[in-house]
Computed example of a mutant assay.
Amino acid sequence: MISRLSGAVLRAAMVILMIAMPALVLAHTSVDTAQIVALVCIVAGVFTFVEYNSSSPSLIEFRDAPPFNRIRFGGLAATVVALTVIAKGATDPTTLTALFQIIGGSLADAMDFPYSPVRLVVLMLPPEADVTLINDVRIAAGLSYLVSLLSLAVFVVALRLKNWPNQRGGFNVWTNLPTFDPTAGGDVVHRLERDGQVNLILGFLLPFLIPALVKLASDVFNPIQLQDTHTLIWTMTAWAFIPSSLIMRGIAMLRVAQMISNQRERAYLNAKEDDGLPA
């Protein structure tokens, strides 16, 4: 009980710190922005604490199957920190901010090629956007997209090396997939495979679809004002994190489906050996 409580408090504190970091680090944060950030921090902190302190989660998946959520949070936090450091260099340049600016610019140049997600993000900007804004968006998009790819690579390596998700000897579907109802109908393995494939397809397509949809919607609605530093940080973070999170979820669900299928085969073979069932 104490271990669960302390873990929930630690996770909630880390989530709050990550959300508040841009507002705490960047100068000239408006009062309205600070109030919105404070409200989001409270909601996210309470939600994280309740989910991890409860014995029956309601929304957070793979809670008891590390390092799935740790890798996702690490990638999200790394993106926010990197973009915040780069944004801070615009008003308070230091050696660290200059280093991040150079790295981000090099990554943007390498990933900004025709039909790439980074190029599509740049193209969604209005024609009257100035050169400084275009460069900032390119750097933020390239850096955030690279971090998302690295987090995916880390998860795949962990999956292979640690026999995820049952490296602890068992996997509770109810605890780790609270939004998935095994009794909803149909074969569980087929449903997991279908959901996993849908997540993979969406995760791959969203980096390309989101800029196109924003560009189309800008003709009807007011376009996203990426001139605001906080908006730029969180927009680029969400643009890169959501697709990578969907891909990771798809891989995880396909892995769980494979694990259940293997257990069924072993149970069938054991029953056939014990009872003499025909092949």
Score class of each variant (00 low, 15 high):
179 T>N: 14
11 R>T: 14
191 R>H: 03
56 S>A: 09
73 F>S: 02
78 A>N: 03
192 L>V: 03
95 T>V: 12
68 F>L: 07
249 R>E: 11
83 L>N: 12
138 R>F: 01
269 L>H: 13
193 E>H: 13
153 A>W: 00
2 I>M: 14
246 L>D: 01
80 V>E: 05
271 A>C: 06
264 R>C: 05
161 L>W: 14
208 F>G: 00
111 M>Y: 05
18 M>C: 14
259 M>L: 14
76 L>Y: 06
70 R>Q: 14
86 I>L: 03
265 E>V: 15
103 I>W: 02
196 G>C: 00
21 M>F: 14
49 F>I: 03
136 D>C: 12
131 V>G: 01
269 L>F: 14
60 I>Y: 05
6 S>M: 15
31 V>W: 08
66 P>C: 02
237 T>Q: 11
216 L>W: 15
32 D>G: 07
235 T>K: 13
271 A>N: 14
162 K>N: 12
120 L>R: 11
118 V>N: 09
27 A>I: 00
74 G>E: 00
245 S>Y: 13
17 L>E: 08
22 P>S: 07
210 I>M: 08
131 V>L: 13
110 A>R: 02
108 A>P: 05
240 A>E: 07
233 I>F: 05
243 P>S: 13
24 L>K: 01
91 T>H: 04
271 A>Y: 08
245 S>F: 11
202 L>S: 02
198 V>Q: 00
